[in-house]
Design a protein around this nucleic acid. Sequence first.
RNA 1: GCCGCCUUAGCUCAGUAGGUUAGAGCGCCGGUUUGUGGAACCGGAGGUCCUUGGUUCGAGACCAAGAGGCGGUACCA
Length: 492
Amino acid sequence: MSKKTKSFRPKARRPKGFEDRFGALASAENALIAAAADVYASHGFEPLSTSALEYADCLGKFLPDDDRPNEGVFAFTDDDDQWMALRYDLTAPLARFVAENYDPLPKPLRRFAVGPVWRNEKPGPGRFREFIQIDADTIGAPGAAADAEMIMLAADVMDAAGLARSEYVIRVNNRKLLDAILGNIGVPDTDEGALQRLRTLRAIDKLDRLGPEAVARLLGDGRKDASGDFTKGAGLSAQGITTVLAYTEAGADDLDATLSALEPLMGVSEKGAEGLDELRAIAALLQACGYDDGRAIIDPSIVRGLGYYTGPVFEADLRIETVNEKGQPTRFGSAGGGGRYDDLIARFRGQPVPATGFSFGVSRFAAALHSLGRLGTTEIGPVVILALEADQMARYFAMATALRAANIRAEVYMGGSGMKAQMKYADKRNAPAVVIVGEDERLAGQVTVKNLVLGQQMSGDIKDNKEWREGRPAQTTGPKESLIEMVEQALN
RNA sequence: GCCGCCUUAGCUCAGUAGGUUAGAGCGCCGGUUUGUGGAACCGGAGGUCCUUGGUUCGAGACCAAGAGGCGGUACCA
């Protein structure tokens, strides 16, 4: 015979940064999505689904911070040599959709979208290369009311996700304030100035992680981190650094107090006054609707790293510390963020279209909740109907159908193994009960229901092996007509 | 990308000063129990010690390079 050739066997491995979510985690994620979608739909937002792939120029061209164009996206060319890219968020496809279908769409357009997005970046805790976002955006609404609504929606979603009001906060700021301050301290309105502004944003974004001293270096000449790597700074003057840091520290828990603290920092800047007016309008609405109870605060240290925001920006943060499996504190980053981006659609249409939105990182949020132990790690499985006689499958199926009709999750064992293995299977599935109908029960017109939860409790007291096997604890036998009552009793 | 740490069974790890047939716990499979999961006892399977090259009579252990993982940092739409 021919030589035995070793068949190629690939190693089963999951790509880095891509997560498998099974059972309880997947259910929890679905529940989060459903809760958020429900909030958005109840506010009148319409669902929009778009494709995972977009032409790369539709995604990439409107990235203002293009000191690194196209890096971070998964892209390839199709048969027509067109560059395709997996979407990295849901906002860029929305801009494309709106620009493509502008005329017939209602304005303002209120839409929400859910789906996976992909980023080719180094993964970490709560950072994935594929993750699910759920977004709500209002397109064509210039006023601060639309921004205020986004903030309240974000809070509503956090509520719907089951968080207590003390456990999260929506931080609000306005890009125009920092622009005003940078103008006041002499950052010019040139390309070089734009780079300084971008570096300043990124530096402030690191405040919570690195602290004011490191951020001061990043605002100045630059910073060398513990590993010896050097990051070039924004090149602000010493006076400028002091001013910027003072600005980031002007936040207080009370909306009005923060606003009054910010006022003197704006000087005579027109842009600063504009930004403050917008924040005042937002604050007034938040107060009127009762969201000023600590759920929403103005925090000047929130800037969002993204360059395209033009006005109000917001971020949803967990206030509870998360830990990993080893009990070490873990930083998950924000659960969501958003803001006003009046120039994004202008890339396609040539004229500005006011827009504001909020994006909720479902996967990261689910991971954080999981690490908090908030997601059920043990999901209750279905009632398992043992398949003891191969020629009685129709009978087992009928019992399963009857249980389902009574709103009880049920399945028939589909494997080919014996009773012991079937019991182990039910145990591994975390089944609350099994239904046992073998030849004995069938001939007697009876069914046996075993309560696995109770059985496990009782097993703690059973020492004797005989008693263990023959006692048949936690199970009852009765007429087959009372199957449903017997199962229901076992479930309670 | 840069820096550091790590890589031995499915998982968590031990492996003494380089010295025969590489170990433990948990898990998995089987038996005690051909109709009973979870306790207990008994037994079993499972390893190219990440890869390649080098040093050595001899390498899981020492050296070098590479790959992969983790962490920090950068970037992050």
